[in-house]
């Protein structure tokens, strides 16, 4: 069953469908906020806010679009609101899952910790590039949906993803060898 089916069922009054949406999309949304830099507690609060907003606006959901894209759009708006309100706090809070900044991707790749090296390289990218890779690669949204969320043309999404991956490759060249 797809996310769209679940939202349609919830719109029709099935409360279990909403819990299924939470189970399905919750981890993805949590990953979205964590990778954009939210500390664990804040990320959970923001995921909760996303679902509360879904409850408030379920009548506005149109089944023509993808359910995950709709939820990620809400999540992104909440993240932007949060950053506007508390810009310095969000960037200063330490993220326990991020690798030690004293060690670069190359050193990590050499040590064999490739996953950590990729995460480190991703975290080192500018926020807009990270957000693009998050939606297009990690959340696996079609470029059309990414373009709708970011408010840019689909062709721009394609070229930006290409250059973002190139940049990521430059940040951790030893991955290719691996």
């Amino acid at each position: 069953m797809t996310g769209e089916d679940r939202l349609r069922r919830f719109q029709a009054g099935d409360p279990e469908a909403f819990e299924e949406v939470v189970q399905d999309m919750g981890p993805r949304l949590l990953g979205f906020f964590r990778r954009l830099g939210a500390p664990p507690g804040l990320a959970e609060d923001l995921v909760q806010d996303v679902f509360l907003r879904v409850l408030q606006r379920i009548d506005r959901y149109r089944p023509s679009g993808r359910a995950d894209a709709w939820l990620l759009r809400i999540a992104r708006n909440l993240w932007i609101d949060h950053r506007r309100r508390r810009r310095p706090a969000a960037s200063l809070e330490p993220d326990p899952e991020l690798p030690d900044p004293g060690e670069g991707p190359r050193e990590r790749a050499e040590r064999g910790d490739r996953a950590s090296a990729v995460r480190f390289a991703l975290a080192a990218l500018p926020e807009d590039t990270r957000e693009l890779l998050e939606l297009a690669v990690l959340q696996r949204l079609p470029y059309r949906e990414v373009a709708g969320i970011l408010g840019i043309p689909e062709g721009t999404v394609k070229s930006r993803v290409f250059y973002a991956l190139r940049r990521l490759r430059e940040e951790c060249p030893d991955l290719e060898e691996a």
Binding site: E19, G26, P27, G31, E44, S116, V137, L165, R169, E176
Partner: peptide, 27 residues
């Protein structure tokens, strides 16, 4: 090929964390 492999690495390196067990109750 390289960039596709890199995207695969990226997806593998960034799994989604699980929701805390009490998340639904809090919601």
């Amino acid at each position: 090929r390289e960039l596709e492999a890199l995207a695969g690495h990226l997806q593998a390196a960034c799994p989604d964390p699980p929701l805390p067990p009490d998340f639904l109750a809090r919601l």
